[in-house]
Design a protein around this nucleic acid. Structure first.
Length: 511
RNA sequence: GGCGGCGUACCCAAGUGGACUAAGGGGGCGGAUUGCAAAUCCGUUAUCGCGGGUUCGAAUCCCGCCGCCGCCUCCA
């Protein structure tokens, strides 16, 4: 069974076959950097980061491009509003975006081209269309003539006639209302920063052309996967296809992948929604604010818990629910580290990616079998249109199996005589299996690093104080003074610290 | 009005013709464990929006209806 991908172009799942054997080119539409990004903008990057990691694991050489749109009407407006330059605004918002990507562990992007740095490519591209008489100039603007493109509308399944009159751009100079701008003439009052020289006079590129130009520059005239939110299908991607294929006579992207939109209170989140209520939501939901409140891995896990084509309903309650699920894994990892004296994260790094036999090095039959089966289930889900939700389910099952073995073999309390296995051998198996789980999760960029729990106040002092407290409590428990023991536990609980009395001692954690 | 999508348990969410007498997570309930908890484990909690139809067989295909959402203007 091979990898299949749902292609918006054909509206069905198709076996993935790259344009060039062994190589994959991916282009994802990135942000327009005029306002801080929100959760929804993280969906594409996170999904595609997982996609890239998985494809690399599958043996492909992948080049992934995400653009930054830093030339746009909205930047001009927003910069003026903030009394700054478009350049300063773009740099500030871009930095904010990149910081968020880093925290979300979206670190497999190869190239992030900026529109402002590819004006030459864009102009050349428009000239190509002009030479072919597909683009025409009109008062300093250059438009794409949709009537020259026989299959215009194939991506979004629209016909030009249906669009007639709908596009309200007021450009009387257009031949057809559905024609779209490739180049926009500069207006006198606009800042000099956004006035670029061109054969048609000063101006700036239209919205769609930059993606075509940059995608071709870095991925060639035909490449494998083009992605973005479903809201980009029309007009953006439709127009990209139109201009690109009209210029080259070759297919542009082979697969079009569109992720579902993020919603709050059943409504799509949108940067450009003027509704005051939405603006308030946006303010709260910026990636920046969100990542101040929650760990990046939690947001990533939250997003990957849904198949990418489904919409995601964002709410604090949902995040909380996902956090508990994530904690199950973290607790297992801590438990194993405690029992084995080795971090399963490190062991996972040592183990490397799962190969032909994911159960290698595990003596226990149940565990070896689970390593093989859960890895297979994980991959099966991923092979089916990158079903990260299904893949994560396999991880949960895997964790449950390992916990069960720990229970059954009584590893925590020194070994089960009935099982007649040396405790050390059992521990080694548990460690390896857990490491395997981590190494599999890493295929989608999860469990890359240990969570830095309480990083801020872990200077050792709190540990020491907690140990004293725990010893005192241990003492009174030995004397059956449970009232005092429970008082200590309850008071700590009120402070957000939970005690766990285990067979091998008492542990504590911050809630 | 045109185009597209969705509706699976209390909530989130996989599955899209037969191994589904429907994954997984959260929550609830019962049990094991525990001095009691916590954690962990075990069990339990749905016939798939509604009504027809196709089929030996449908959550999965077709028709109709209801509800929700997206795009058609900028949007990840």
């Amino acid at each position: 069974m091979g990898l299949v991908i749902f292609n918006t172009l054909t509206r069905e799942k198709q076996p993935f076959v790259p344009v060039q054997p062994g190589k994959v080119g991916i282009y994802l539409c990135g942000p327009t950097v005029y306002k801080p990004s929100h959760v929804g903008h993280a969906v594409g990057p996170i999904i595609f980061d997982a996609v890239k990691r998985y494809l690399v694991h599958c043996g492909f050489e992948v080049r992934w491009v995400v653009n930054i749109t830093d030339v746009d009407d909205k930047l001009i407006v927003e910069a003026e509003k903030q009394n700054t330059t478009t350049i300063e605004l773009a740099e500030r918002i871009t930095k904010d975006y990149l910081d968020a990507m880093k925290i979300l562990r979206v670190d497999t992007i190869d190239i992030m081209p900026k529109a402002s740095e590819h004006i030459g490519d864009i102009i050349d591209f428009i000239k190509r269309l002009e030479v072919r008489d597909i683009a025409y100039e009109s008062g300093g603007d250059v438009y794409f003539d949709v009537t020259k493109d026989a299959d215009y509308g194939k991506l979004s399944n629209r016909r030009i006639e249906d669009q007639a009159g709908q596009r309200d751009l007021q450009s009387a100079e257009k031949r057809n209302p559905a024609d779209f701008a490739l180049w926009k003439a500069a207006k006198p009052e606009e800042p000099e920063d956004v006035k670029f020289d061109s054969p048609w006079g000063k101006g700036r590129p239209g919205w769609h052309i930059e993606c075509s130009a940059m995608a071709m520059r870095y991925l060639g005239e035909t490449f494998d996967i083009h992605g973005g939110g479903v809201d980009l299908v029309f007009p953006h991607h439709e127009n990209e296809i139109a201009q690109s294929e009209s210029a080259t006579d070759k297919p542009f992207a082979k697969f079009w992948m569109h992720n579902g939109l993020t919603k709050v209170n059943t409504k799509k989140i949108s940067k450009s929604d003027a509704d005051p209520e939405m603006q308030a939501v946006l303010q709260q939901m910026t990636l920046h604010n969100l990542l101040d409140e929650y760990p990046g891995e939690l947001i990533r896990f939250f997003i990957l818990s849904t198949q990418y084509r489904s919409p995601i309903e964002y709410s604090q309650a949902e995040i909380a629910s996902k956090r508990k699920g994530l904690d199950t894994f973290y607790r297992l990892f801590e438990r194993v580290a405690r029992l084995c004296g080795v971090s399963p994260y490190e062991k996972a790094t040592e183990l490397g990616e799962p190969g032909d036999d994911p159960g290698a090095g595990v003596a226990s039959d149940v565990l070896a079998k689970s390593c093989v089966e859960q890895t297979a289930l994980f991959k099966k889900a991923m092979d089916d249109d990158f079903n990260t939700a299904g893949a994560i389910a396999a991880l949960f099952d895997f964790a449950g199996i390992i916990n069960r073995v720990i229970e059954q073999e009584k590893i925590e309390s020194g070994g089960n005589v009935a099982v007649r296995r040396a405790p050390d051998a059992a521990k080694a198996d548990v460690l390896t299996a857990t490491a395997r789980l981590i190494s599999v999760a890493r295929l989608i960029g999860v469990f890359l690093d240990p969570p830095d729990l309480q990083a801020a106040d872990r200077d050792g002092l709190i540990d020491k104080a907690m140990n004293v407290l725990i010893q005192v409590r241990q003492h009174v428990r030995k004397n059956k003074d449970f009232t005092t023991a429970d008082l200590i536990r309850d008071l700590l609980k009120e402070q957000g610290i939970t005690l766990e009395d285990r067979a091998d001692g008492t542990g504590w954690r911050k809630d």
